[in-house]
Deep mutational scan, measured.
Amino acid sequence: MSRVPSPPPPAEMSSGPVAESWCYTQIKVVKFSYMWTINNFSFCREEMGEVIKSSTFSSGANDKLKWCLRVNPKGLDEESKDYLSLYLLLVSCPKSEVRAKFKFSILNAKGEETKAMESQRAYRFVQGKDWGFKKFIRRDFLLDEANGLLPDDKLTLFCEVSVVQDSVNISGQNTMNMVKVPECRLADELGGLWENSRFTDCCLCVAGQEFQAHKAILAARSPVFSAMFEHEMEESKKNRVEINDVEPEVFKEMMCFIYTGKAPNLDKMADDLLAAADKYALERLKVMCEDALCSNLSVENAAEILILADLHSADQLKTQAVDFINYHASDVLETSGWKSMVVSHPHLVAEAYRSLASAQCPFLGPPRKRLKQS
């Protein structure tokens, strides 16, 4: 649940008159999402009104509101027999009622949201009550392989729920002597030191190019640089560091992050930047690179990204790559990247197969709970 924001200063709310007192009302909304995959969808019983329910879910471990999704594969009634019906059901509720908006969509073979439908307002739910769409999607369109909505005969539904909580009022009075504290510009100011090479005390040599930097900042941000300058190493004695395995453009992006906490060109060089972040123990930059690479996972590059993640101990990226390969196994196994990995990294192939087997055979063990970014 997000923290209630402070109200904007009255002088910034309007260029008009300023009242002596004010009130700011925040209506709290808890948002969460749920993904439900139905394997072997074409084998569902086709009687009209037949119901399939998901397991229950909530916004978190401490949330007492429990929900589930309900599907009628062949419609709810005679009117909707040519459609799939989809509903959000409130299973248990400690209150007399709650209000919530919802959005349903289908994830296609690429994991993209399609055929989205959402409620136009927050509906009133009581325990045992459901709301949804009797005519969510035509069955003939859903079952047509050309539309790519049932890869490997799996129907994957994605649901986003927004639950309306209580409202909170914050009130106060205006004073004539309003003090406005300026925003912190530390990142910009440190970035200026790097860009202008002011007050530098060490030189970093990268592929024949020299960059002036500040030992204190490098040591504070990177345990690797800290070790170089702290001990009686040649880098500490000469205040000069030779860097041979990072390209200059990648190095500059890494230094921008060290000084400012930002990497504006990360998406263009996420793979190389991940390697640099791993070498210099820049954990936050490493996770930022993992996130960017996750966003660009595809059938063509899944094997290469899995190898990269394994090489640099990028655990979150590795998990996402394995899950992606499992979901698109029939396509990924035909790529040149996968065939190369079979020869060069057989242990990763074995890991992917083990994960695929456990996903398809849940009876082999208890269900695993899916539970950071600093």
Rank of each mutant, 00 (worst) to 15 (best):
L306N: 01
S197Y: 10
V181T: 06
W67S: 00
C294G: 15
L76N: 15
E50T: 02
H312Y: 03
S119M: 01
A359L: 06
L149P: 12
M13C: 05
F125T: 00
M341W: 00
D130S: 09
Q127L: 09
A207Q: 15
V342N: 08
V343I: 07
P223W: 13
A146P: 11
L274I: 07
P367T: 13
E145A: 09
V18C: 10
E304T: 13
L86R: 00
D271T: 08
E253A: 08
D272Y: 06
R368P: 15
S6K: 04
E20Q: 06
D201T: 14
D315E: 05
S162F: 10
F363V: 13
C159W: 04
C289N: 04
V224I: 15
D63K: 08
G75P: 02
Y280G: 00
P362E: 08
F363Y: 07
M176T: 01
D82S: 11
V250L: 01
D152H: 15
V206P: 09
W131G: 00
K279F: 09
A359F: 04
K28F: 12
D140C: 01
W194L: 06
V164M: 08
N174M: 04
Y34G: 04
V164W: 05
N239S: 01
S105R: 07
E20C: 09
W36C: 04
H231V: 14
D140T: 10
V241H: 03
Y83F: 05
V91L: 07
M255Y: 08
Q212Y: 08
G132P: 00
T175Y: 04
S162C: 04
N62K: 08
A302I: 14
P5N: 14
R198L: 14
D63P: 15
I305L: 10
E79C: 09
L311K: 11
Y87Q: 00
L143T: 11
D140N: 08
F136H: 12
F257S: 09
L297T: 11
Y123V: 11
R124N: 15
S80F: 10
C203S: 13
S313I: 04
E20K: 05
A303G: 10
M341V: 05
S59P: 03
K64E: 05
E20V: 02
N326C: 11
L317R: 00
F102D: 00
K134F: 00
S85G: 10
A213P: 07
C361V: 15
Q320F: 05
P151H: 09
W338S: 00
S33G: 10
A116E: 10
E210G: 14
E334N: 01
A219Y: 15
A359E: 06
A220I: 08
A219G: 06
S85D: 15
T37H: 06
I170D: 07
C256M: 01
M228F: 14
P248L: 04
